[in-house]
């Protein structure tokens, strides 16, 4: 799986991106229509709002083999549901501290605020996340051995 790939030099990081349906979704679409390239390593999961993200989604992604998780939400103050991203900010700040404390590399979990017009930034954040995670190597911590 991940580690075997690393040995043969062909490992590609897998990054799961949780993208909110409003600003983040718009910027993701804009990245697409604007031809902003970002690698296929990023797999997008759409949620209505960053506030919907249960920290266990992040843990589950890591357990399932994601080497990194990126969360995109609207800029604080611009949330379509008014306070969803504010809740997410509190929650993810605490969760990231906790995960880091128990030994997860902090760059594996990233949260970014983005506006609907920032297509270039959506792609930029995605590219950087992939490179950050590539530098860290395949996730070892939480991964569950899958049936082969």
């Amino acid at each position: 799986m991940g580690e075997a790939g690393e040995k043969s030099g062909s490992w590609e990081p897998k990054v799961v991106a949780f993208v909110c349906s409003w600003c983040s979704g718009l910027s993701a679409d804009l990245a697409g229509t604007g031809g902003e390239e970002y690698p296929a390593n990023v797999r997008v999961v759409r949620v209505p709002c960053a506030g919907r993200i249960n920290p266990l989604f992040v843990a589950k992604a890591l357990q399932s083999g994601a080497d990194g998780v990126v969360i995109y939400g609207c800029h604080p103050g611009d949330c379509h549901y008014h306070t969803g991203n504010l809740s997410a900010r509190r929650r993810m700040a605490l969760f990231k501290r906790f995960m880091t404390y128990i030994g997860t590399e902090p760059e594996r979990i990233q949260v970014s605020w983005i506006s609907g017009a920032e297509g270039f930034r959506f792609a930029e954040i995605a590219r950087k996340a992939v490179e950050d995670v590539r530098a860290l190597g395949p996730v070892k911590g939480l991964v569950k051995e899958t049936v082969s």
Binding site: P76, G77, L86, S87, R90, M92, A93, L94, K96
Partner: peptide
């Protein structure tokens, strides 16, 4: 704290 929100907690951004 996780039931309340604050618009102005910019300091939290550094945690993310």
């Amino acid at each position: 704290p996780l039931c309340a929100v604050d618009r102005d907690e910019e300091n939290l951004n550094t945690e993310l």
